[in-house]
Structure formats: C-alpha cells, structure tokens
Amino acid sequence: MKLILLFISAAIVNNFVLSYFLGICPFVGVSKKVSSAVSMGMAVTFVMVIAAAVTWLIYHLILVPFGVEILEYVSFILVIASLVQLVEMFIRKVSKPLYDTLGIFLPLITTNCAIMGLALFSVLREYNFIESIFFGIGAGAGFTLALVLMAGIREELELADVPKHFQGAAITMIVAGSLALAFMGFAGLISI
C-alpha cells in the first residue's frame, strides 16, 4: 500500500516538473508535439528507474561503508552520464525501432536535472531499495504526464492568437503556470 501511495505522490501530488521544477529544460524544449513528448517521457522514465536502482546501490554499498559520502555528487553524475551512454548502446543493439524513436533524446537526458534530483531525493528521504524504484517509476510517469499535457496544449496554441511579446517562451511559462495551478489541487491528498 505504501508503495502505491509513493507512486501516486511522485506522479501527481508532488509532480517533478510542476512542483519541484525538475526537468524544465526538456519540458520547454521538447513539448511542441505530442508524439515526441511521449518518446521523451518514455526515455526519461526508462533511465530514471535504472538510475534510481544503481545510485541506491552505489550510495548504500560503496559510499556509506567506506565513509566517503562527500563524493556523492561526483559519483552520482558520473554514474548517470555513463548509464545514459550504456542505455543508448543497449537499445541500439536490442531494438532498432525503439532506438530510432528515442534516438536524439537519449543524450539530452544526462543534463536532465530530474534524474539527478531523483537520486538526491531518494538519499535525502532514506528510501529503501524497493521504495526508490517505485519513486523512480512514479516520477517518470509524472514527468511524462506533464510533458504530454503541455505538448497537447501547445499544439492548440499554434492556432491561437497570442499577443506578440508573449509568443514563444513567455506563453509557455504562463501555460505551465496554469498547469501547475491545476496540479496544486492535488496538494495535501497524500502526505508522505
């Protein structure tokens, strides 16, 4: 039961994009078309779950026993960067169609703060291994949800008559603000 609550909390109540502001760059950059938003969301979720597992293992099996928690940031970012490379090579070998869909989005994930944020939050909140993985799945689902919603709105926005100075990034921010306002409605639903 706790795991389901954790999933819902990460996906909806404390949405990574709309209430923690993690992963804003792809949120603004790759949210012009619904199809690419779905691919990006899938790629991020995939890497997130693996990164959650690997960084948990590294932190609790290497950094803590040897008393070198000070290397937390350096090791996490290195692990994430190499993980993204590995996942990219793995997908290219195993599934060519999937690689073609995710292709260009994979390298971008390295500097996606959502992945790093996930790893830091798991350590900060002292999740156990299974909880970290569920947290990763939930955060990935929440990221995908926010990205796809945003892309849907922006496709409609193409046809709207936006005031000249608000075109581009400005209106995207205002729309994101309205979305965040809607998601605030879930606040307090679950407290974990």
Binding site: L18, A169, A170, I171, G177, A180, M184
Partner: peptide
C-alpha cells in the same frame, strides 16, 4: 510553484 512560472513568463 505556479507563481514562479507566471512571474518568469511576464519577465520574458
């Protein structure tokens, strides 16, 4: 959080 997005939107 919504205030952050709105303010930045108006800044831009």
């Amino acid at each position: 959080p919504p205030g952050a997005f709105l303010t930045l939107g108006f800044f831009v």
